[in-house]
Design a protein around this nucleic acid. Structure first.
Lengths: 331, 331
DNA sequence: GTGAAAGCGCTAACAC
DNA sequence: GTGTTAGCGCTTTCAC
């Protein structure tokens, strides 16, 4: 920066201002500075700026995985919304472990991010303390809660699963099974299971919960779960899968075994992924706003950064993006 | 850090060493320091460390998008491999624009990453200069080249498409269409098209290239492309789609229109995504090593970081992970 | 609109 | 094995 300043015949602070707040530098000087930057190939050391100003240009985000299309979509939309303001994404992948999440958060916080975006509302005990102490803008995504750390954006997985289960009940199905992931890992999936249970209780029906044999929700694991259901002495009339990928697998199995869908087995999914429309018959499912969650998270971060952090306790703390039960032919 | 040092009755440098190189601190002091860290809730400011040591703990990665499952998988595997060494991922999303890639790279470099991972081998002119000047470990992914900036890992999209086209020719198909993305955007897709053309020339067949109507390769865009092919006065005997997602759409269309696959139209995909096995009939496709590319990129970064940067010009500069033509029933 | 001086919080280099 | 000193490259503060 000293080189650039010397070349442009100005002080280093003017170079800094030309980069950070060009409107406070005369047009003539600005031009000289830019020419000098060009000539020297100067790239500012952002670590130094961060150290002095105590503000980086990074937003830390932690997701359970990027292998699930839906989280990847959210992150993509988040990156998109932040890029417009010159903010970069520092990504941590927790592998669905809240302990890993806390450890990763500690490292990421060391980089002095200006905001933090988390997945879910269930965190290790230290996380809330860590974040509240720093008075950083924090956005929790994918689920809502009574008491967010700061801001939350998502929808109620509980209500969404309840709505779908009720829709199945309204269609006359009585023996409705739920096929979920092993408990204690994916929080959103646990919420969906709870919503299913609540709906079944409301309908006066017996809950019937089956588990996928792996966490990585694949078409193949859905296929295996469907096989197990169909092999029962008394198979259910309807099966509500924790997501579209596994539901799609179930449809494939029915097709192969000659079980008509929905007459032999009604199948519902969750997510309204592209696969849902491509399925044959197309899947009855719940549409959830994956991309919109990322875009909204970006908006919330930017709003919090614009307004003063820690202020405005009256502002709405949660954004409910809702969901939609999509009736197609599979149920 | 001064607080922690005072509390532990040591100098700040000892706190630094306790964190960075604990083996150089006596066990007794180490314990006192850790207790003090715990008590104060101290989190090191990594920006300061980066500034002084000129080495961060971040690796910059730029991908065209995260909405494509395959790039997300690569990034996930990359993050995984780097986390083991305490390295964080700084992500940039370029939207397939090489100009955006360069702009993003400039910002990311300002954060002083210890290495850079790029997608593809086709970059804006400034990129190579920028990276070579810094003597940073650089890994280009997803395609190979004669002259990588530093290291490259991937497979030959050209050869993979050629192999698939030849396989179709060997099966007796003559009128083989290629369905690709609009030119000039996705480099990997362009390589595949070139491979197809080379194979057709080798087979003595007329190339027949159709385009998808959008870049975002969706099932629906594959469906529309298939409709167009089938609506022709003389439809092709086989269609080689630029990826499995669109090929899957094509299979769906055939099923709906009662066109038998492969007898009425043979269909080949690219990628061997989960969808390929789930399709009915399952897709003949090319298996590509998405996760492995990310894992290998992580390994190459770590190797370059361990060995001295800029050294060892004898080491292999490219890692060819290969591909595999997978014959299933769709062609 | 521009500049001089100071210092952000760490760690490299050198003592001991 | 531990401490002292200095300084990384910026931006803040205050002055003009």
């Amino acid at each position: 920066m000293a080189d650039v300043a010397a070349r442009a015949g100005v002080g280093t602070i003017t170079v800094s201002r030309a980069l950070r707040t060009p409107e406070r530098v005369s047009a003539e000087v600005l031009e000289r500075v830019h020419a000098a930057i060009e000539a020297t190939g100067y790239l500012p050391n952002l670590a130094a700026g961060t150290l002095k100003s105590q503000r980086s240009r990074m937003v830390a985000a932690i997701v359970p995985t990027l292998r699930s299309a839906i989280f990847a979509e959210t992150v993509d939309a988040l990156a998109d919304g932040l890029r417009a303001q010159g903010l970069q994404l520092l990504i941590g992948v927790s592998g669905y472990s809240i302990e890993a999440e806390e450890a990763i958060l500690r490292t990421l916080l060391g980089q002095q991010p200006v905001a933090v975006v988390l997945t879910g509302t269930h965190h290790a005990p230290g996380v809330r303390t860590l974040l509240r102490a720093r008075r950083l803008p924090v956005v929790e995504t994918w689920d809502l809660t009574e008491d967010p750390i700061d801001r939350a954006v998502g929808f109620s997985n509980f209500e969404a699963a309840r709505a779908m289960t009720c829709a199945l009940g309204a269609r006359g199905y009585r023996r409705i099974a739920f096929v979920g992931t092993p408990p204690g890992i994916e929080q959103r999936a646990a919420q969906r299971l709870a919503g299913y249970r609540a709906a079944m209780a409301g309908l006066g029906l017996e809950p019937d919960v089956a588990m996928l044999d792996e966490l990585g929700v694949t078409i193949a694991s859905g296929e295996r779960a469907a096989e197990a259901l169909l092999d029962r002495a008394v198979p259910p009339e309807a099966a509500f899968f924790v997501n579209d990928v596994t539901a799609f697998g179930a449809v494939q199995v029915c097709q192969r075994r000659g079980v008509p869908v929905p007459e032999g087995l009604a199948i519902a999914g969750f997510g309204d992924f592209e696969l849902a429309r491509a399925s044959n018959p197309p899947l009855t499912t719940v549409r959830i706003p994956g991309g919109l969650i990322g875009a909204t998270a970006a908006r919330l971060v930017l709003e919090r950064l614009a307004g003063d952090v820690g202020a405005d306790p009256a502002a709405p703390r949660g954004v409910d993006l809702g969901f939609e039960v999509i009736s197609r032919r599979s149920a």
